[in-house]
Simulated assay, not measured.
Amino acid sequence: MTIDWSQQRILVFAPHPDDETLGCGGLMHRAKAAGAEVYVQFLTVGDTADNSAKGFSTADERYAEIKEVADHFRWDGWHIAFPGDEYHLKLDALPRFELSNAIERHSPLSIAELRPTVVIAPHRTSYNQDHQVTAEAMHTALRPSNTRLRHHPRLVLAYEEAADQWRYEAAPSPNLLVELDEEDLEAKLAAMRLYGTQIHEHPHTRSEQTLRSLAVLRGMQTGVALAEGFYAMRLLA
């Protein structure tokens, strides 16, 4: 199967800044280099407790990192739907109706507004509550219906992150693998370095070694050097 990335308008849903890079940084770089449009809808960001020397990163620091990463990947646009500590790491407290509507139509980068050909979001088996509810809200927003009345992206994917397997009901291996070259992977790693408050030394799920190791594993599984793994939820040829 071959996807002509040059013809795609890609919308990535990221619960927090860095999820889009962890899950599909290589694909974004490959698609953008081919001529695709790439947009990122972040769901929330706020002050974050972390393992840095000071013990937290501020929302202002996170915003500054997003801007650097956006320039690095040359995104065509990005937006944060629910900014602030009221929502950050608390998306599961939002009514599903409100979250789904933001994804479907009540955001500048909603599915109805942008009409993407490809939608990519987290997988529901993540241990993180914000990831779980983002995935479920995306499922609702992209429910099957009359394509003459609502926009249906032809390709809907869920991305994986290294820690997603930390669940009893962990998903099986990805069923769609996107080949990367070294330049794509290096762009992904460089973007994670720009997320200076979020990247960690190995062993950690957000270390460079983890990201490279996962790309090597997924590549091996399909007979190439490097790849990113996805779960195809809709594939309309």
Rank of each mutant, 00 (worst) to 15 (best):
R62C: 02
V178G: 03
L155V: 03
S126M: 09
E61F: 04
L94T: 02
A237S: 14
H204N: 15
Y127H: 15
T210C: 12
Y159T: 08
T134H: 00
A135L: 07
P172R: 10
E113P: 01
L109S: 01
F13H: 14
K90W: 08
S173A: 15
L176H: 00
D130L: 11
R218W: 04
A187D: 08
K90P: 00
V69H: 03
D71A: 15
A225G: 08
A64F: 01
A64Y: 00
F73N: 04
T205H: 15
A215P: 05
I10M: 06
G223Y: 09
D18H: 01
A64W: 01
I103W: 01
P116F: 02
A121S: 13
I66R: 06
T147Y: 10
E179V: 03
E169I: 06
T197A: 10
E201D: 14
F82K: 07
A121F: 09
H79R: 02
A36N: 04
Y159K: 04
Y87S: 02
L99C: 09
H204I: 07
N51M: 10
G219H: 05
I199P: 01
A34L: 13
E208I: 13
H106Q: 13
Q41E: 03
Y127Q: 14
S173C: 12
M1G: 12
H152M: 05
I120D: 02
S126T: 09
